[in-house]
């Protein structure tokens, strides 16, 4: 048996095939093998959220999953959400509200927040949801709790919440 594997992924709607050492995380596969460097490596231990991408519709820490565990998966990175000139509404809202300073955590914040709003829409409760019988609403308190897996070392949190709130209000 080999210590490396062939992996097929659909990344940002394009089918890709890579040959990787089994140790390769999804994060390193994206950055080093597919040159999608928008996804950032922060702590590499699932604590900071900078590496957040969307896999099969769910946000995950790409540093804590192996590429080989994601055979056949559909991955969306920050590059797949939007590009300069054709920004995703969340990207545009982060620019408008100045939801960053250095920008290193921003791709993770944006991927996380896009999938997070889908979680609220799909009736997934959170720690601060008052009543488990009712669907949560994207209040500032809900957004802060649900985004706690994304750390911003510059402390742009209040503007990040403003950006996410604006997108949430446009959706509803």
């Amino acid at each position: 048996m080999n210590e490396s594997s062939k992996v097929r992924l659909t990344v940002n709607r394009t089918s890709r095939e890579i040959h990787v050492d089994n140790r390769t995380t999804l994060l390193d596969a994206l950055r080093e093998h597919l040159q999608l460097t928008g996804t950032k490596k922060g702590c590499d231990h699932g604590q900071c959220g900078a590496c957040t991408v969307i896999v099969d519709g769910r946000r995950v820490n790409s540093c804590l999953t192996l590429a080989v565990m994601n055979e056949g998966a559909e991955v969306t990175t920050i590059e797949g959400l939007g590009e300069p000139g054709d920004l995703h509404p969340m990207q545009a809202a982060f620019v408008k509200h100045d939801g960053f300073q250095c920008g290193y955590c921003t791709p993770g914040q944006i991927c996380s927040s896009v999938a997070m709003l889908e979680e609220i829409a799909a009736d997934i409760p959170s720690h601060v949801t008052d009543d488990l019988k009712n669907k949560a609403r994207p209040t500032a308190e809900e957004i802060r709790e649900r985004m706690s897996g994304n750390i911003c070392r510059c402390g742009a949190y209040s503007n990040i919440v403003d950006a996410i709130t604006e997108v949430a209000e446009t959706r509803s």
Binding site: G46, G49, N61, L64, P125, H127, N150
Partner: peptide, 23 residues
């Protein structure tokens, strides 16, 4: 779980982050 075992739902939601709970 939310209806009959809310204790379990609450415990799960108090742990980790959204990203981690998804995996």
């Amino acid at each position: 779980v939310r209806r009959d075992y809310p204790l379990l739902a609450r415990a799960l939601l108090s742990g980790a982050s959204g990203q981690l709970r998804n995996r």
